[in-house]
Design a protein around this nucleic acid. Structure first.
Lengths: 353, 353
DNA sequence: CCTTGCCATGCAAACGTTTGCATAAATCTA
DNA sequence: TAGATTTATGCAAACGTTTGCATGGCAAGG
């Protein structure tokens, strides 16, 4: 009888002893990969005993031996952004079915912190990474590629020679939906608050805007310094201070659109009466904002789910070819867009003023 | 020369060889706890060499030996609820300073899933747990206590003989702020949409309501089936269908309050004109809702931060006394509350109808 | 019946740390 | 200066798995 209070977890040796068999046989019987090596009758007795003793393999011991942690790192640029929770759920569901666990790290702010976060994750011996933080040229991605760590990008892509798997939106197509909608409403002077051009989303959405709106006025395109409300506010303020009139603005994401609301309110303008606004992402709760935001809906959950699946496949077979999955967005029309005021009708920012 | 492409990570033996010293010395030199045992000069050469070789201790090997993972599990009831991201940030900051990493698990829905999630976490050999999911009597907590796993509760408490550390809000006090505000506005008929009474928050906020509003009408208190928008909607609908008039409702949290918005809109009533509504939590973005929600602000980040600190302390010294920290909430008045319509003024739900 | 081969299992060596104990050197005490 | 004490390091045994190899038994084939 042991005197220690903490009941020592059962080890593989306990199971082996209970069944009257060698530890290695237990190991084989419990691993689906090697289960076929052991006689069926024995395997059954082993599983029964292991269940009875509440045995679970020690992750440290098996990890030490196999160099696999069944853990993947997930880098998120900003956990406070409500787009990510649904994506995370998708990721976790995908990983869970493969018996894997996610370690979520949010890499707020300065990109140089990404390096140390990566170190921490690699120090935990993650088997692979899902990155939602990639810049168009990204050091983290480069390092992973160099060290041979499987990576799946999410939402954003990188520009590089070596291929990386990615699950992204059709950003250009999504923006086109927004632009077409505004044009159909009668808008002719449409501005764009672009995301940071160092990010593929910012870049692609900007190109999408230019492609969808032939002859767009360059003065009506402003690059926000970040995907945040304050950056959107600042960009919108700049736009309002400019001399080129406009009746609608396509923001590169929902947070930027919210910033627009703020700047408009401060300028004494109303959305959508004076200026229509569209967002991108359809993050949770934007339907409850004032006004409810017209935005481009992306498939959050699906995005996470697919990314998880792709990564699991890469882990299963290291030579899996890289894929890039492009998800189709859709437009959700709500209260933040309406036809422009008729010429001369009022206080808008229209070309009529 | 090795032929394998993957550059094998440096081990403690590599460092030992480089310095011309035994592995155990390296181990001691690199561990702040034991560093004093090794001569300063040697220690310096060791740290230099380990840095040069890019050595980091293998978590599996050291975990196997020490039975510590430097990992803690965090159980969240619903990652989609925007209250939690700020809390998580607080937790992560606290853990990071202690060199610890969080594994976040969201335990959506059925409480019986909590058990399997706990298994998964314990299987990962987490050193401790932060639980935001606790019921007033909670099996997960019981199991942790039984197995001697350090636990810190967050937001919610448990009713039990054995003490558990917790970081919670002054729920009663918070609700009193909301009630007093409504009373000051002139409301006399105030309803309460209570949270699930199996949760300490639901229970405490309900008691707070009763304590703050002497002679509250029991018919105006309804227990929502969950902390969700749909449950809030359903509860509010029930309230509206009842025969007891009211001019304001105190919801037990922000999501319930949002549900109230929905039910009111469906009933053709306006908030705050016909019915004032207050929430609880002041989760991100509620200031942008329509109308902006008057709510009780809690210290999200601080809550996470303190919980992390407390858990780290428990891990450092297993005999640390349990503490319960109660954070002070504050009222944020926004657009969802206003004085009740004067008697006979209109279409409201007032006692005047 | 003897060889050949297969199949199920056992054996033992890793995987990379940490740590109690032993030991040698250095310092102190008498 | 011998013995006692401290100090810095080495030694080796764990920690709990996994897995290549060895082995024994048993069936099949000649």
């Amino acid at each position: 009888m042991t005197k220690q209070g903490r009941p020592r977890k059962a080890t593989i040796l306990d199971v082996a002893k209970a069944v009257g068999v060698h530890a290695s046989t237990v190991s084989r019987a419990l691993n689906p990969q090697t289960q076929h090596m052991v006689a069926e009758a024995v395997a059954e007795r082993i599983t029964a005993a292991s269940r009875r003793l509440g045995y679970t393999a020690d992750v440290f011991a098996s990890g030490l031996r196999t160099r696999r942690s069944n853990t993947v790192g997930v880098l998120i640029p900003d956990i406070m952004n409500p787009v990510f929770p649904p994506i995370l759920r998708g990721i976790e569901d995908a990983l869970a079915t493969a018996g894997c666990t996610a370690i979520i790290a949010n890499a707020e702010g300065e990109p140089q912190r990404h390096g140390t976060i990566l170190d921490r994750l690699l120090g935990r011996r993650v088997d692979g990474l899902i990155l939602a933080t990639a810049q168009r040229r990204d050091q983290v991605v480069d390092r992973c590629l160099a060290e041979g760590v499987p990576v799946v990008l999410i939402n954003r892509m990188v520009a590089g020679k070596r291929p990386v798997s990615a699950v992204v939106n059709d950003d250009e197509g999504g923006i086109k939906l927004a632009v077409d909608h505004l044009v159909a409403l009668g808008h002719r002077h449409i501005a764009h608050i672009a995301g940071p051009q160092a990010l593929s989303t910012g870049h692609a959405r900007r190109s999408g805007f230019l492609a969808a709106l032939k002859g767009a006025d360059p003065a009506l395109i402003i690059e926000a310094s970040a995907y945040s409300e304050t950056a959107g506010d600042a960009a919108m303020a700049k736009l309002l201070a400019g001399k080129v009139p406009f009746t609608a603005v396509v923001a590169a994401n929902d947070l930027l659109a919210l910033g627009c609301y703020d700047a408009l309110a401060r300028a004494g303008l109303q959305c959508p009466r004076d200026v229509s606004v569209t967002g991108f992402n359809d993050m949770p709760f934007v339907d409850r904002f004032s006004p409810p935001l017209t935005t481009v809906r992306i498939q959050h959950y699906e995005m996470g789910r697919r990314a998880g699946d792709v990564l699991m496949e890469h882990l299963r077979r290291r030579d899996t070819a890289t894929v890039t999955i492009r998800l189709e967005p859709s437009l959700v029309v709500r209260g933040s867009t309406q036809p422009p005021l008729p010429a001369g009708a009022g206080r808008g920012r229209g070309p009529s003023r």
